[in-house]
């Protein structure tokens, strides 16, 4: 699909805001050294909805996702070269922003579940303790609440002191989600959270994502198109570092308005 994007508008229409906006991307351009990974990105992500990012490998989904909690800060030469990203109206890259605190407010769950080599309980308590919580009872409550919200409590309540590595892949992934929500973030970023899970574990995580949207804003990157249609309220399609189309999921997958979107989601690419 060469040059096709050149004729596209730089501002794919943002869906009518039915919900309050939490994240806003304005005219964003992002580079790794001299190479441009994202350009002309304008996007408004509504609060307490699930927004999915789809697009072929290398189109910049993870880069944008990591931009939302400044995970790119750790990459040499990676920087915003134009535009800005706002979280509830505040520029995330303002020098006054504490990136560590930001990452508590904008949590992240990765493709490979990455529990610490500690007990199930400690995996969740750890983040709370780092955050300055010392009250044992409050920590215990928060651990239980997060495990319940992550739909894992019933499966682990009798083995909280056992190693997190004794859990199945799907349980480990839900543990990581519990860990991320224990600190009560407002946004939860997920980069291919189910790609290492079997269909049943995937269904559990998808159900969980759906439930999480009652309290959190979820932004999920997925290569699984059916997953995007199942879990998300809105879908953004990226191609070659550009946002091609952003629309309510049902509409994007039934009547996309851009031929690039059509070609990609129907599998007629290239």
């Amino acid at each position: 699909m060469p040059q096709a994007t050149a004729t596209l508008s730089a501002n794919p229409s943002t869906p009518t805001p039915t919900a309050e906006e939490i994240l806003r991307v304005e005219d964003l351009e992002f580079c790794y050294g001299k190479s441009v990974a994202l350009e002309d990105i304008n996007l408004s992500i509504p609060s307490r909805k699930v927004t999915a990012f789809i697009g072929p490998s290398g189109c910049g989904k993870s880069t944008l996702l990591r931009g939302f909690n400044r995970m790119n800060d750790e990459v040499d030469g990676a920087r915003i070269t134009k535009g800005r990203i706002l979280l509830e109206g505040t520029d995330l890259y303002d020098p006054s922003i504490d990136a560590v605190r930001l990452r508590r407010q904008v949590g992240m769950v990765f493709q490979k579940s990455n529990p610490f080599p500690r007990s199930i309980f400690d995996n969740i308590a750890y983040g709370l303790q780092i955050g300055g919580e010392t009250d044992r009872e409050r920590i215990r409550e928060a651990v239980e609440r997060s495990l319940r919200q992550a739909a894992l409590w019933d499966e682990v309540k009798d083995r909280l002191s056992e190693s997190a590595f004794g859990l199945s892949g799907g349980q480990q992934q839900r543990l990581c989600i519990a860990r991320a929500i224990a600190v009560q973030p407002s946004v939860l970023l997920m980069d291919e959270p189910c790609s290492a899970l079997d269909p049943v574990a995937t269904a559990r995580v998808e159900e969980l994502i759906h439930k999480l949207a009652e309290n959190y804003t979820v932004v999920i990157v997925t290569h699984n198109m059916q997953q995007a249609t199942r879990v998300s309220d809105l879908t953004a399609f990226f191609y070659l570092g550009k946002l091609i189309e952003f629309a309510p999921t049902g509409r994007l997958f039934s009547s996309p308005s851009k031929p690039e979107t059509e070609a990609y989601i129907t599998g007629r690419f290239g």
Binding site: M1, P259, E260, G267, F269, G270
Partner: peptide, 12 residues
């Protein structure tokens, strides 16, 4: 890119 082009999955 032509949206009438063939699907990558030939069975489909």
């Amino acid at each position: 890119m032509n949206q009438r082009s063939d699907h990558i999955l030939s069975a489909y």
